[in-house]
């Protein structure tokens, strides 16, 4: 892999029984880059995300991550304490359903502060100031800081999850359908927010989505998957405006009229 690659994968394969969920997938990600993985349901997008983030072990292949000091780590050979430490500091994971990631019995401020406290922050006032700052950045009113997430709307929950993830300034964030399940106007606002934050903070993102318009809005590069294989990849505009593979042509023609 090149000297400045943040994340690189070679020959990732993973099988679930008779289903080949990933078939010899290569991928690269540079710092500050947004990579979209698109494809229909069951094409292996989420499996790829789980394998890249070390949550799932591949049958074959290897994934490398470069830490801030420049050292390379095999994601699946890392000791568990190190991988877990990575997941709560340098990495982030945004799930489709914020209720899976948030603690619903803990106030919004506590949810944002959790990663700080997991890293050893022990000053209540400073944790609270940081949490408030982040809630404002994701456009949640500071007066809602001590409310429980169960009183929040779907869009607010997703923004809260993003604040909770970004509070430790991760360099790499995995997102699994971050706008899925939200209505269109809320989606637009959320996408705009993600785009601004990611650009300002220079965060690299691996974004899984089935929605080509989300990919077009956020991603620099795109990978199209079908039945576990990457059928086409390249710059987002290039792939979406001039699709070469028949499957990509089908995908593009099925949505872009809108």
């Amino acid at each position: 892999m090149a000297d400045d690659t943040l994340l690189a994968a070679r020959g990732l394969s993973r099988r679930f029984g008779a289903v080949q969920a990933l078939d010899n997938v290569d991928a690269e990600l540079w710092p500050g880059e947004v990579l979209a993985i698109v494809g229909e349901s069951g094409s292996g997008k989420t499996t790829l995300l789980d394998v890249l983030s070390g949550r799932l072990r591949p049958d074959r292949g290897v994934a490398w991550y470069r830490d801030p000091a420049g050292a390379l780590h095999d994601v699946h050979a890392m000791p568990e304490p190190m991988l877990r430490a990575l997941h709560r500091s340098d990495w982030g994971f945004v799930r489709q359903n914020p209720r899976d990631a948030l603690r619903l019995g803990v106030t919004a401020g506590g949810n944002v502060g959790e990663r700080l406290m997991a890293q050893g922050a022990r000053h209540y006032g400073r944790i609270r100031d940081t949490a408030q700052d982040w809630l404002e950045r994701v456009e949640i009113d500071a007066s809602r800081m001590d409310d429980l997430p169960r009183t929040f709307s779907g869009g607010m929950l997703q923004r809260l999850q993003i604040a909770r993830t970004l509070v430790t300034h991760p360099r790499l964030v995995f997102m699994d359908e971050p706008t899925g399940g939200l209505d269109v106007s809320v989606q637009a606002r959320l996408l705009d927010l993600i785009r601004t934050l990611v650009a300002n903070l220079h965060i690299a993102v691996v974004l899984v989505t089935h929605d080509l318009s989300v990919a077009r809005l956020l991603a620099h590069r795109i990978m199209v998957m079908q039945r576990g294989c990457v059928v086409e990849s390249g710059l987002t505009d290039q792939v979406l405006d001039d699709p070469h593979h028949p499957y990509t042509q089908l995908l593009v023609s099925s949505v872009l009229q809108a």
């Binding site: 709560r88 106030t107 209540y124 609270r128």
Partner: peptide, 18 residues
């Protein structure tokens, strides 16, 4: 095993907040 006690601290945070 991994000395991950952030969660306990979150409980204290909630107490101080409430």
């Amino acid at each position: 095993a991994l000395a991950e006690y952030g969660l306990m601290q979150v409980k204290l945070y909630e107490d101080v907040t409430r």
